[in-house]
């Protein structure tokens, strides 16, 4: 029987390394997307917090009333 153990070890090492590379690539991309998602969530929160607080504004006078005042003056 020929001694081909080295080839078998090399073959399995490379084959399983390629499988590991596929898994790592998927994990890395998912991790990057999770980081993007967290950054977006922070950005959304910042926008919400920095938006001006709406207070009750005085009600503008109707146009007809303004015209009456102008006529009276």
């Amino acid at each position: 029987m020929p001694d081909t153990l080295d080839y078998m070890i090399t073959g399995y090492a490379l084959g399983l390394a390629l499988v590991a590379l596929i898994i790592f690539s998927i994990w890395w991309r998912y991790r990057s997307l999770k980081a993007d998602e967290a950054a977006l969530a922070r950005l959304e929160q910042d926008i919400r917090e920095s938006a001006p607080v709406k207070t009750a504004q005085p009600k503008p006078e109707p146009a007809s009333e303004k015209a009456d005042v102008a006529e009276a003056l």
Partner: peptide, 9 residues
């Protein structure tokens, strides 16, 4: 028998 361990690949 004829290829040895490499056949496991």
């Amino acid at each position: 028998r004829s290829m040895g361990e490499v056949q496991r690949l």
